[in-house]
Design a protein around this nucleic acid. Sequence first.
DNA 1: CAGTGGTCTAGACCACGTC
DNA 2: ACGTGGTCTAGACCACTGC
Lengths: 249, 249
Amino acid sequence: MSTTMTKKAPKYQKIKQYVLQGIASHNFIDGVPSENQLAEKFAVSRMTARRALDDLEREGSVERIPGKGTFVRRSGNYTQGFFRVRPFRKWAEDLGADLRTEVLESQVVDPPEEIAEVLEYRGQMIRLCILNYLNDIPVRYAVRYLRADHCADILWENLAETSIHDILINKYRLPLTRISQSMTAVGLPESLAGLFGEEPGYPVFYFQRTVYSCESPVTYVEYFMRGDMAFKDTFTPMLEAGDFHPERS
Amino acid sequence: MSTTMTKKAPKYQKIKQYVLQGIASHNFIDGVPSENQLAEKFAVSRMTARRALDDLEREGSVERIPGKGTFVRRSGNYTQGFFRVRPFRKWAEDLGADLRTEVLESQVVDPPEEIAEVLEYRGQMIRLCILNYLNDIPVRYAVRYLRADHCADILWENLAETSIHDILINKYRLPLTRISQSMTAVGLPESLAGLFGEEPGYPVFYFQRTVYSCESPVTYVEYFMRGDMAFKDTFTPMLEAGDFHPERS
DNA sequence: CAGTGGTCTAGACCACGTC
DNA sequence: ACGTGGTCTAGACCACTGC
């Protein structure tokens, strides 16, 4: 007893505190100190400074851009509502499963009225129908619409191997700034039963997603995903305002 | 195709894959290889092996215990970082819907074996069966288990009006530090069809959730929720660390 | 070109659990 | 005493961005 047994505060904790304080005080509006700067300031190795920034990035406070620097994440750190989108590829990676992608259709079409409305565009669109397999089991079917004037050349890409989001971002320079989606559980429509090798009515997840770039809609996509594909997640509950538990009064 | 520039696969990725495969093959039931073992096996430094395990731990696949080792996380591998939990009450608020809660059962029971395992407790438990209505439509059915030794008095609470989480946090001083859950889409079981007023097989969301307080499981709950209750969300995609595009060759 | 973040090394000391 | 994970160091090379 005697001494207050100060635990042992890791050095990277102090660095995190420092950065968080700086963020709160709006001191780092044009960039958090670099890893080297932090390392020097706190007389630690770069790996230690880096560890602090690693944590902050995972916690959503900070964003890192290779070759440029580390920046305060705009709009603070709020994990909005419900979801985070996770690229299907990463998912497959995490599961250690083989991902196979089959492009069933890719052509220019005249969009149905609802789609034209959602994408706020009345011209022609590209429709992509894509089936994803995990370990040779058909797991997800996607019907996607893209404005033909935005990215007609996308028909020439290797869509089976490249993420469409990546193409939009990197090739067409469409930063994806907002995603709006809805998820329900529905019975598998008859028209898709064959693709999945299940009976109509088999429970599936149904997503409807609109992706925006700078407030203008870029692509709309519907997913049907096998209901037995579990979304598993482990996380720390975010204490929403009011969920606070004062550790005593 | 172009050039087959092999990208550059970080070494720790290979280690992650190896461990994930091993987990999937049930090879590590009594412990994942230690950091030193992995470092040697892959001829990398310990820091690199550690990086792989760090990732897997954050992703929820693996659990580390200082002085003991690294272990497969029981009943909960694979994280998507997909959800945030949103209290049903807030949800109803957002929808502007009337929330009504009906307690169908609240009693002390001897838990089924699977539940005892998940909660790591073999004594008696409290089982609560609760039905939530939105605008008088039965929307969610919950079966919850709580350790009787933790919170027997909860039977005397007004469960229809108070959030169970709030009770656990504020009354029993159980900070909810971790949530592990899985969501699938299933057909409504026959036994619940009457409650929902739907046919068996009607698509519903099925959640299985374990809530931990300081690494020890506190409550397990299963939800059945109408599939036509949409999870809607709008958000800004956060480019995760690693959203770079390892688009293969 | 210099600076940044991303990865990696080959050591090190500590606190902890097991034997 | 030994192995484990937790932290830390002082270097290193790479790919990328900026000028």
